[in-house]
């Protein structure tokens, strides 16, 4: 009986870890979406494309400039974030007075352009990106299972990033300005805070988070132009489930749903691709504002 159970755990563990890794990406991506939506009232459909750009920039840095993983982890979010600044200033900033749906349509168009350009340049098949030497080698023995070092790193790094983002928004003066501007931008502007610049930087930060997730994902998934669009729709469902009102809420929802997905892969593999969407439907019926959302 006990042996049966231990065997089950051993079989299930890799799937659950894979679920946690996916959850780490859901958390990072939905966090970025929530930060951007809170400030800009725009759902950033290009988030998946920017995630993919993060991975590609890491690949380019390594193969064209010889900059290793750890450098890319810092440089890639900065580069993609700068690209986000250009997008926000040139295009997205023109839409703030219009219906929110136009922001969605614009960023959807941008996602198509970015994905198309990368497909033209690099082809549709994936490019390999090796994890750094310090994170390869013997997997960590957790007693009941072996955990590849890199996956452990991804989960820890994503978790730390999420907590750091939460601390910045909830506990610092900059975060206080940000929250205030989300509530009432004209009033904050009247106090002498440069709100338009803050909006631009918020977008850049959200895009940077997506790119960071992209760099983390590069050694796990093959670097390919479709890697973002595969993720982003699931992340939308995650965002609907969590509700975009709370930063911590989107982190918890992200990790939690990753776990649920992993568990589903153990119990009933056929449903693993759809389980998050089913949960979304159930949450909408029971609590339309989302688990952590304000009505």
């Amino acid at each position: 009986m006990l042996e049966d159970f231990l065997f089950q755990v051993e079989m299930a563990a890799p799937q659950i870890v894979l679920g946690l890794v996916n959850g780490a990406f859901y958390a990072l991506l939905s966090l970025g979406l929530a930060v951007i939506f809170g400030m800009l009232n725009v759902i950033n459909f290009a988030h998946g494309a920017q995630f993919m750009m993060g991975a590609f920039v890491a690949w380019m840095l390594l193969n064209w400039l010889g900059i290793p993983y750890w450098g890319a982890l810092i440089l890639s979010p900065l580069i993609v974030g700068a690209f986000g600044v250009v997008l926000e200033r040139l295009m997205i900033s023109r839409l703030y007075k219009l219906d929110h749906l136009y922001g969605l349509l614009l960023t959807f168009g941008l996602a198509l352009i970015i994905e198309g350009v990368f497909r033209n340049t690099f082809g549709s098949s994936g490019l390999p990106y090796a994890p750094p030497a310090s994170l390869t080698g013997a997997p960590v023995d957790l007693g009941f299972m072996l955990l590849p070092k890199y996956r452990l790193w991804v989960v820890v790094a994503a978790f730390v990033t999420c907590i750091a983002t939460w601390l910045v928004i909830e506990k610092t003066r900059l975060g206080a300005y940000l929250r205030a501007a989300t509530e009432n931008a004209p009033l904050v502007q009247a106090f002498g805070v440069n709100v338009p610049r803050m909006i631009t930087l918020t977008y850049a930060a959200g895009v940077g988070l997506a790119a960071l997730a992209g760099v983390l994902a590069a050694p796990i998934y093959s670097v390919n132009p479709a890697m973002g669009s595969n993720f982003i729709i699931t992340v939308f469902a995650v965002v609907v489930i969590g509700g975009m009102g709370s930063i911590l809420g989107s982190v918890i929802t992200g990790f939690g749903l990753g776990l649920v997905e992993g568990l589903t892969r153990v119990v009933y593999p056929e449903a693993s691709a759809t389980v998050i969407f089913v949960i979304m439907a159930i949450v909408l019926l029971a609590r339309p504002a989302g688990l952590f959302g304000r009505a």
Partner: peptide, 10 residues
Amino acid sequence: VTISQGIIFV
């Protein structure tokens, strides 16, 4: 095709 669709959207 994808790129031009995106450009039309924008």
